[in-house]
Nucleic acid binder design. Structure first.
Length: 265
DNA sequence: ATTGCTTCCTGAGCGC
DNA sequence: TGCGCTCAGGAAGCAA
């Protein structure tokens, strides 16, 4: 499932493959996948800039249109020049004037492509917390956020209003490497522990971006390639941790949590 | 205000 | 072989 490193990898792939291309149109093959929120129906223009905010992909065009893509769990943006029928669950497609296209493939259909007049996309993004790889994301910021919440620390790390872009896999890995139990009430964490989380978070996310993300099942880059960071996971989906302890799998807020009760306190 | 449950959806994997 | 069940989960919506 695409989290920050996977979305970042997709964005980098888009910059390489579709920058400057003129959009001929966007086709929607499943009702509700493409939502055009614009006030007028003008040209979509050329792709000027591609970026990311949390898990949202932002594509700005020369006609001041912003295309916001959220992959949710199984969404993929695959670049294609062949025109061949290579997608089993194609929900939408961005067509370029030169005949190439971006296929939006999404098995579970939760993903969305929204088209906004520039500026109007802000409403969807304003609730997001700080970017975990930004300078502003300090141990003090995290501690302040955790102090306000009694829910388990794992749940708070997944809250997009606190950290933009973290998901289930990286939250588990971060807590494991920081040696903190996912069951701890967020407001019980000490300043030193928040510091460890911030440190491990930076380390893991940067490393995962270098490895083009994590592919458990569905995630693929724009070039339809898997990531490699799954080879470096230490708890998610594992039976034993590096020290040989048994890893427990529990449910928290409806999601599976993997952790080592011996190494994480 | 905060928290957690339900919903959306399809395919894989499992037991019988 | 095939049926039915459970599980995977990001985020919105809702209820307590």
């Amino acid at each position: 499932m695409p989290e920050l490193p996977e979305v970042e990898t997709v964005v980098r792939g888009l910059r390489e493959k579709v920058s400057g291309k003129e959009i001929a149109g966007i086709s929607c093959f499943r009702a509700g996948t493409v939502l055009d929120q614009r006030k007028t129906n003008g040209e979509l223009g050329r792709i000027r800039e591609t970026g990311r905010r949390g898990k949202y992909i932002l594509i700005q065009t020369t006609t001041d249109v912003v295309i916001v893509v959220h992959l949710r769990m199984t969404g993929k943006l695959i670049y294609d020049e062949s025109g061949e029928d290579l997608s089993s669950h194609c929900r939408a497609q961005i067509n370029f004037r030169d005949g190439s296209r971006l296929i939006f493939d999404d098995v579970r259909t939760f993903g969305k492509i929204k088209i906004y007049d520039k500026g109007d996309e802000k409403g969807e993004l304003e609730k997001l917390g700080l970017e975990p790889l930004s300078e502003a994301f300090s141990p003090e910021y995290l501690l302040e956020q955790l102090r306000k919440r009694k829910a388990p620390v794992k749940n708070v790390l997944l809250d997009q209003r606190v950290i933009a872009g973290l998901g289930n896999i990286y939250a588990a890995e971060i807590l494991h490497r920081a040696g903190i139990s996912p069951l701890r009430g967020a407001d019980t964490l000490k300043s030193e522990e928040a510091g460890r989380i911030v440190e491990e978070m930076r380390e893991i996310l940067s490393e995962a971006i270098k490895k083009n993300g994590t592919t458990i099942s569905d995630y693929r880059s724009v070039e339809d390639k898997t990531g490699e960071f799954q080879e470096f996971l230490q708890v998610y989906g594992k039976k034993h941790c590096r020290c040989g302890h048994e890893i427990l799998k529990i449910k928290q807020a409806g999601r599976s949590t993997y952790y080592c009760p011996a190494c994480q306190r």
